[in-house]
């Protein structure tokens, strides 16, 4: 299963090679061509099979390969490894977790002072990254030799199926956005009435950087962004938005902090969902940002839409999503892309 392979690989922003290599293998017999650019984006192209007249000629669909994680900043003489977050990591979630360091995937743990030794009040204080260290079990000498500043570390989390029936929930890390990558790889299995540029982007988590240069280079007529997005549907005191709900289908973005989606494209997605009877939901507006934020303002403007698989607890070592939502996202995107046949009034 491609999804399992993708989420068990490590690909913190700036170091997406392992994920890229898996994706290259997965799309090799589906795409006509691929390229890797200066930042490390993988852009696979599937050319249309016939000249289908007017309308949309070039569509870019993007999903980001990178995940949030950690970077080694200093190896202390006693072997403890200082680190800093890469992308938006909540310092509260890293305490007492297992990580893998570098290409060698050296295992390490992020320890914490035993509860017995805490001063009064200390257990109510949030630990800062500066107060934490990775322990790889190494002597100072060995740590200095094998672990170097600038190496990345990633959460060590296995992919597992939690519920075989029902919502078919799975747990793993980096569903944001390996879920999108897996959907995008599926889309390349078909041909479309336009040239499809599947952009597996880098560095989304540190500022939408890969998508920006990819969109500039590809110059598509329209773009879709596939995401694994916030799902906050746990019980709460107030009757407020869950952002998205697990199992309620692909989430469509109207607007978030980075983009106001093109209303024609959003409407196209909704029509397709209704026609096929695919459940869908509208994501809470104003939350988060995606590669679409960078893509839609490239050159003289690119209409964009965002379709996401809801995932609970993203940006933490372990998140949960539903395979039903995942498969419905594939179906919705496949159908919507075919609907671009007649073109979009642009």
């Amino acid at each position: 299963m491609l999804l399992r392979e993708l989420v068990e690989a490590d690909g913190v922003s700036g170091c997406e090679k392992a994920v890229r290599d898996i994706l290259i293998k997965a799309i090799e017999d589906r795409a006509d061509e691929y390229r890797i650019d200066a930042l490390g984006n993988l852009i696979a192209v599937k050319y249309r099979r016939s000249r289908s007249g007017a309308g949309v000629a070039k569509v870019m669909v993007a999903a980001h390969m990178d995940e949030v994680g950690l970077m080694v900043t200093k190896v202390e003489r006693d072997g403890f490894i200082r680190f800093a977050p890469v992308g938006g990591v909540d310092p509260r979630v890293v305490v007492a977790k297992v990580v893998r360091i570098g290409e060698e995937r050296i295992p390490g743990v992020i320890g914490v002072k035993p509860v017995h030794l805490l001063e009064p009040g200390e257990r109510d204080r949030v630990l800062k990254f500066e107060q934490l260290a990775i322990d790889a079990g190494m002597s100072g000498e060995e740590a200095q030799r094998r672990v170097r500043p600038g190496m990345y570390a990633s959460f060590a989390t296995a992919f597992e199926l939690l519920d075989e029936g029902g919502l078919r929930t799975v747990k793993g890390k980096a569903f944001d956005d390996r879920a999108g990558c897996a959907v995008l790889a599926e889309l390349l299995a078909e041909s479309y009435p336009f040239d499809l540029y599947a952009a597996f982007t880098v560095q989304e988590e540190v500022g939408l950087r890969g998508a920006r240069v990819a969109a500039y280079a590809v110059e598509p007529d329209v773009a879709f962004v596939l995401e694994g997005t916030v799902c906050d549907d746990s019980p709460k005191e107030k009757d407020t938005s869950p952002t998205t709900r697990l199992g309620a289908g692909p989430a469509l973005t109207v607007m978030d902090r980075s983009v106001i989606c093109d209303r024609r494209l959003v409407q196209l997605l909704i029509s397709e969902a209704e026609a096929q009877g695919i459940p869908f939901q509208v994501k809470q507006p104003g939350i988060g940002g995606t590669d679409a934020g960078a893509i839609h303002v490239q050159r003289d403007g690119i209409p964009c839409a965002v379709v996401a698989v809801p995932a609970r607890y993203i940006h933490s070592p372990v998140s949960v999503m539903s395979l039903n939502d995942f498969e419905n996202t594939v179906r919705l995107m496949r159908g919507t892309l075919q609907r671009l046949q007649g073109g979009l009034e642009l």
Partner: peptide, 17 residues
């Protein structure tokens, strides 16, 4: 080494317009 790396995968590819 720094330039964009392109790989063509099969004979039938290539832009149609």
């Amino acid at each position: 080494e720094l330039g964009v790396q392109v790989r063509r995968l099969n004979g039938q590819g290539g832009p149609t317009c």
